[in-house]
Design a protein around this nucleic acid. Sequence first.
DNA 1: ATTCACATTGTGTACGTAAACATTTTTATA
DNA 2: TATAAAAATGTTTACGTACACAATGTGAAT
Lengths: 354, 354
Amino acid sequence: MSKIVRMKDIAAMANVSMGTVDRVIHNRGRVSADAQKKVMDVLEQINYKPNLIARTLSSSRNYRVAALLPDAELDPFWRSSIQGIQQAHSEHSQFGITISYHFFDPYSGDSFRQQAHDALESGPDGILLAPTLRQEALDFAGICREQQIPLVCFNTYIHELAPLAFIGQDLHQSGRLAAELMTMIAAPGTILVTHIGEQVQNSAHIGAKETGFREFVREKGSSHFEVNTVQLESPSRSGFKASLAQALETHPHTKGIYVTTSKAYEIARSLEELGKTDIRLIGYDLIDENLTHLRNGTINLLINQNSDRQGFLGISYLTDHLVFQKPIPTLQYLPLSIVTRENLNSYITSQEVN
Amino acid sequence: MSKIVRMKDIAAMANVSMGTVDRVIHNRGRVSADAQKKVMDVLEQINYKPNLIARTLSSSRNYRVAALLPDAELDPFWRSSIQGIQQAHSEHSQFGITISYHFFDPYSGDSFRQQAHDALESGPDGILLAPTLRQEALDFAGICREQQIPLVCFNTYIHELAPLAFIGQDLHQSGRLAAELMTMIAAPGTILVTHIGEQVQNSAHIGAKETGFREFVREKGSSHFEVNTVQLESPSRSGFKASLAQALETHPHTKGIYVTTSKAYEIARSLEELGKTDIRLIGYDLIDENLTHLRNGTINLLINQNSDRQGFLGISYLTDHLVFQKPIPTLQYLPLSIVTRENLNSYITSQEVN
DNA sequence: ATTCACATTGTGTACGTAAACATTTTTATA
DNA sequence: TATAAAAATGTTTACGTACACAATGTGAAT
């Protein structure tokens, strides 16, 4: 029977005007201690839930969100993040959300600083950030905090950033999962953990996966498997395939390769060219380049970081925070999705609507 | 620059009143051909998107939704569906959605009819249905169509129901996936597909999984694996373990068991009691009973039907349809999530909020 | 031409909140 | 005490839509 309580009702119960109730609820000040108490007393008795619909309609202002993430032209991994952001945007545009995009070179501090500057220039009410560069991200987060701009981060977890929300994957656990899967599908022998032309800045990020991987093997598979880390040339250089071949010669009993980034397709391509078919390959992310090899069997498993959903949730959370003033999760770990040839389509199909 | 167009603007452009615009947009009739044309012309030129916020606030009526699904007391599988429904409800209750629950015995037509009758009695504006009983569901859907009550179904796909939306899993593909996983982790030998005390009504439902499973093995694993179907006693009967032991004697080279329902824990328990440790076990759903065995390793893999998300989406779609009059997907297949010991937590953890 | 029935069109109010604005009360100052 | 300034409180309007209601216009029957 509990009818919905409105500000009007509270005003009546407390014997004050709606204006006063409004001032108390939003503590805008300019209220006598007496009135304050009267309203607070009522608020404690009843369970007032503001009507978010009415609130949104009333204060129908426009919110600007700046999305700051690497350029998908430079790394296709980010394509799906952008898709997720765009989908969230199209679902929320009616709430007066506009998004400006600022794409940076994921390995260039200068590029980041430039784009970050532009993002701030646009006078955003909220910022969505993929903090691939640690130090630059920290500096930027400081400015956001100074300027009181809500910051939501995704993909790369950096504890000290202390954003309003982080959305991503538990990387340590992700590494453990990869190891579990590898020990399930690979024959006993050597497992290579590959790092491909990585920059120093990313080392913490990648490190958590490797640590998790090794931890699992130590716990559960040390009798059958030996883990070795190899550093390969950047795929953009001609030496890439050679450096892989070299690694395989050094470790002749290699039965599996774990690629900690979305670049498994580069390894897959080289393995095909080298005619190696007895090596299990586990990598990350449903980018087109990987899917081809997952379908033809060169890549056996992919762990999906759900970066489309990361982008989607990032924008959704900012909308909830800005528009609806709803509480949002501080830390949102997404599922560690395992993708094979047979469940791939269930992860990438979109549905018709009516 | 494209300012948002309101009904007011359309009225001005077409030289009519807002009332007329309203009548045209909602084709409530009582409009002259002349006025109709004037408004339509404007509507074709501009891109009018109604403000759903304002619409919702204005027609702030209450919607009743009836949820009709099996009793979780009789089958724990349904617990998570209910959780999902409740979560969606708590997120949408501010939009004036109230839900009445009607739990039936999943194997009793009488029970279903009784609860379905109650559900209709409650005068719902929308219905969420888990159509476990085929014929009864068809009859019920007919009544819903007659009474023009929107019907959203989940979990069990029945084509002839033709609901507003179906949310669930592609069962054929689910079977294929199970087979792919089984051939990855099991040693060559016999694979058993088990049916546990199933009712006739569910045969179509379960059949799709088995067909998919066999199809995959035929295509990709026929040289190493032989698939056999076994029918076991209902776990409630004392003969369950014996019937399993009997099946394993009949098929002495059994290396894997595929349980097409959420009852893998029953098999796991019996396997433990029988001391069988070399048989891989793949089942469905993250119910507590299964998780225990997944954690201790008796169950190797679970395929998650995401029934919490099914319930959540079911209510969300009904809300979108009723409250926001948004288009919703006709057919929403959810991902075929693969769950292991190491990614289990990423599927069941909930987050703190701020 | 007058009246009535009916079709069409226009106007006003409600939804619940936020925020601008107007009014009253209190306090400080001369 | 008178008066201005400041503080507190109350009132009104806007947000965009839906819907009830009022006001026109049209044509037919008397």
